[in-house]
Nucleic acid binder design. Structure first.
Lengths: 209, 209
DNA sequence: GTTTAAATCAAACGATTGTTTAATTTTGTG
DNA sequence: CACAAAATTAAACAATCGTTTGATTTAAAC
């Protein structure tokens, strides 16, 4: 699906406002005002407010889908290196599109639009299978410990990321970064999150530091 | 704050519907219908829809606040045992009041009501300080490793719990529990979550199984 | 320059929103 | 029973919601 400049403008405004105020908490007039276009343009281009939400997901997913799968199937990396690659990819996407992940968090909880719920479901299932294979590989060659609950491991990975984006402001003060620039703060936070996830899962999977 | 039977009825209906459809996605008529009362009773008892939301938090917090603090300050437990006590308390509350925690997850992301945001903020700060002390104690006596990012450790704890409640249905199939009773399923999930968190944080804090 | 389609607009649409009113019923007290 | 306070109701309130209309402007094609 291709979107013209005006459509992208609307999508980006909607993404921002939906993330901040929720789907039901954002009116099409808010979006139109923020995007600097007439209200009727939303129905004109997308059909409805719901379809606009679907467009946001279609737009983001087409732009954030990284082909790390081929990377993971190769023999160039050890299982723990593959997990680290996944964490790199996840933290990168998370920090680059925070609004979108806030939206995903909301949709997970509220389930407003059937099609989006299915999209999230499929994405989870795909990621789970991918990680499952890596874990089994690591257990086979003795790198990883036995009895790893992969679904719950994924809950921790996704949950940590999601919680991170919704409570970033809170942790600003605990890292004494209140007067740092947004860009500076974001950069440090990404680094911290990345390192945290890597040491967390290395300890969990291998019982080593 | 004390609430009479009718007020509790309204609070419980609102909690359920807010969790399922969001604050803005739930009308006062929906709540009134579900609680079996007249619409006007909501304004009559609580003043407004917003104040009803505040009442939910006041109600739940007064009923779920467990005094584990005194337990944690005693010398009867090792630092790792104290962490386990916190996990026990957290999983217990999480599974007993899933709707409420869904609501918390939404409020964290959307920030609809100032007073509630502050309540969540204070709760986070309090929990962070509590865990910080335990971690320092564990590091002092050599039980825990060095360089533990406690704020991010809390992100993982809370995030895992929150993600767990919003995606429980998804994981139902992966544990082959689709035809188990709700109570049976809930019991197993609580056990699994509890065990997962304990082994995760034990590995993270001590690098041991 | 004319024609046709796409884009944009202000205005209006009916439906639904949270809240209030004023009347009525229920409850508790003397 | 009589009275006052509390609880409950249907109805109405103005405001806002997402969407549509029909007219107008802009852009593209010949």
């Amino acid at each position: 699906m291709e979107y013209n400049d005006k459509q992208v403008l609307i999508i980006q405004a909607a993404e921002k406002l939906f993330a901040a105020n929720g789907f039901e908490g954002t009116s099409v007039r808010d979006i139109a005002h923020d995007a600097g276009i007439n209200i009727a343009m939303i129905s004109y281009y997308f059909g409805s407010k719901e379809k606009l939400m679907e467009a946001i997901f279609a737009y983001r997913i087409s732009y954030t889908r990284l082909t790390i799968e081929s990377l993971l199937q190769s023999d160039k990396y050890t299982p723990i290196q593959k997990i680290e690659k996944i964490i790199d990819s996840y933290t990168e996407k998370l920090m680059a599109h925070q609004c979108f992940y806030k939206l995903m968090a909301q949709e997970q909880s509220i389930r407003e639009i059937q099609q989006i719920s299915e999209l999230i479901y499929d994405s989870k299932a795909k990621n789970l299978e991918m990680v499952k294979k890596i874990v089994q590989e690591g257990q086979k060659n003795g790198d990883f410990v036995k009895n790893i609950d992969v679904p719950l491991m994924m809950v921790t990975l996704i949950g940590t990321g999601m919680q991170f984006v919704v409570s970033q402001d809170f942790y600003k003060k605990f890292y004494k970064m209140e007067d740092a620039s947004d860009e500076e703060f974001k950069k440090l936070m990404k680094k911290k999150l990345n390192h945290h996830l890597k040491s967390l899962f290395k300890a969990f999977l291998t019982n080593e530091a």
